[in-house]
Simulated assay, not measured.
Amino acid sequence: MSIWEMLAVFAAGIGAGTINTIVGSGTLITFPVLLATGLPPVTATVSNALGLIPGSISGAIGYRAELAGQCRRTLKLGVGALIGGLAGAALLLSLPSTAFETIVPVLVALALVLVILQPRISRAVQRRRERTGTSARPDGGPLLFTGLMLASVYGGYFTAAQGIIYLSLMGMLLDDTMQRLNAVKNVLAAVVNSVAALFFLFVADFDWTAVVLIAVGSAIGGQVGAKVGRRLSPGFLRALIVVVGTAAIVQLLLR
């Protein structure tokens, strides 16, 4: 890897760490850069997953204030993320690299629709709860656990836009603010990246230079993303999710 390629990978790591913390889809920045340096797709995917761990942890630390009071919820959903992430990592090494190409844009598009409609759906659900005298489950119940576990299978396989899927599911099934949900999203992403990376360490090839460059860059980006993301209003954050998600769909379709 030349010095210019190394600088490009480092810069991509910063960008990915920043956007992952705020919204998600940072892999759509790093993955093409790794491919451009000549790494094979699976090696690039594995190197990217390993490198993004510090960024995920950095972003979660940056959102620690929003995680207050969410320990039990985060632990329960984290178990689902761990199971799904491990399954996704195993699928990466057993399925062809094109296995998810058809379904991923559809998943992201559906997630964006849910993000856009989330305020209206939440109001309708709240009115229904008031009529029936029921209250929201603080952990989202089995439906959210299952949905996030399945999203984590995809996250362990490729990771691109998994944060958007997480936010759409939690926004639908949890009665909480976008910023607090974003904090949980960062923890779940850290869990998926970490368990997938530990799996890859023992069974897959990766490029240490790329891993270190992305790791340092994403750790920096995670702090930047937390400082920026925590200042965004719910409406602006939702709009940003839609913009990034739309760009992700376009890139995935053009690959």
Rank of each mutant, 00 (worst) to 15 (best):
residue 76 K to I: 15
residue 166 Y to T: 02
residue 149 M to F: 05
residue 15 G to L: 14
residue 95 L to V: 00
residue 203 V to K: 06
residue 157 Y to W: 14
residue 196 A to M: 02
residue 201 L to Q: 06
residue 161 A to F: 11
residue 65 A to S: 11
residue 40 P to K: 04
residue 119 P to E: 11
residue 191 V to D: 10
residue 95 L to I: 00
residue 79 V to L: 15
residue 15 G to A: 13
residue 254 L to M: 15
residue 185 K to H: 13
residue 20 N to F: 14
residue 139 D to G: 05
residue 250 V to Q: 08
residue 68 A to M: 09
residue 201 L to Y: 11
residue 246 T to E: 06
residue 129 R to I: 04
residue 71 C to W: 15
residue 92 L to V: 06
residue 71 C to S: 13
residue 243 V to H: 01
residue 200 F to E: 09
residue 250 V to E: 09
residue 57 I to C: 03
residue 41 P to T: 02
residue 6 M to G: 15
residue 88 G to S: 01
residue 183 A to R: 12
residue 174 L to H: 00
residue 49 A to W: 03
residue 5 E to D: 13
residue 174 L to M: 03
residue 47 S to Y: 11
residue 73 R to N: 04
residue 114 L to S: 01
residue 116 I to S: 05
residue 45 T to I: 11
residue 8 A to F: 10
residue 24 G to Q: 12
residue 80 G to P: 09
residue 166 Y to F: 14
residue 71 C to I: 15
residue 93 L to N: 02
residue 177 T to M: 12
residue 50 L to C: 04
residue 54 P to G: 01
residue 166 Y to H: 02
residue 122 S to T: 12
residue 238 R to M: 07
residue 11 A to R: 05
residue 204 A to L: 13
residue 48 N to Y: 10
residue 106 V to R: 07
residue 122 S to L: 14
residue 162 Q to N: 13
residue 183 A to Q: 14
residue 247 A to I: 07
residue 39 L to D: 06
residue 26 G to A: 08
residue 227 K to Y: 11
residue 127 R to N: 11
residue 92 L to T: 08
residue 124 A to V: 09
residue 87 A to Y: 07
residue 234 P to K: 02
residue 78 G to K: 07
residue 25 S to V: 07
residue 222 G to T: 10
residue 78 G to E: 13
residue 51 G to H: 04
residue 193 N to R: 09
residue 111 A to E: 02
residue 56 S to N: 14
residue 4 W to H: 07
residue 19 I to C: 05
residue 122 S to K: 10
residue 219 A to L: 14
residue 148 L to M: 10
residue 121 I to A: 08
residue 130 E to R: 12
residue 21 T to C: 02
residue 127 R to G: 04
residue 41 P to G: 07
residue 248 A to G: 10
residue 152 S to M: 11
residue 136 A to G: 01
residue 213 L to N: 01
residue 17 G to H: 14
residue 4 W to N: 06
residue 230 R to K: 15
residue 187 V to R: 04
residue 57 I to P: 01
residue 97 S to I: 07
residue 186 N to V: 12
residue 116 I to C: 11
residue 88 G to H: 02
residue 80 G to H: 08
residue 22 I to S: 02
residue 234 P to Q: 02
residue 104 V to N: 00
residue 23 V to T: 13
residue 74 T to G: 05
residue 232 L to I: 14
residue 233 S to D: 09
residue 233 S to A: 13
residue 3 I to Q: 00
residue 115 V to Y: 08
residue 7 L to D: 03
residue 158 F to Q: 01
residue 39 L to R: 00
residue 191 V to L: 12
residue 81 A to K: 03
residue 2 S to F: 10
residue 218 S to T: 13
residue 227 K to D: 05
residue 126 Q to K: 11
residue 215 A to C: 06
residue 149 M to N: 01
residue 219 A to K: 04
residue 9 V to R: 10
residue 190 A to R: 03
residue 209 T to E: 03
residue 225 G to R: 04
residue 104 V to H: 00
residue 168 S to W: 06
residue 232 L to S: 05
residue 81 A to E: 04
residue 47 S to D: 09
residue 21 T to L: 10
residue 161 A to D: 09
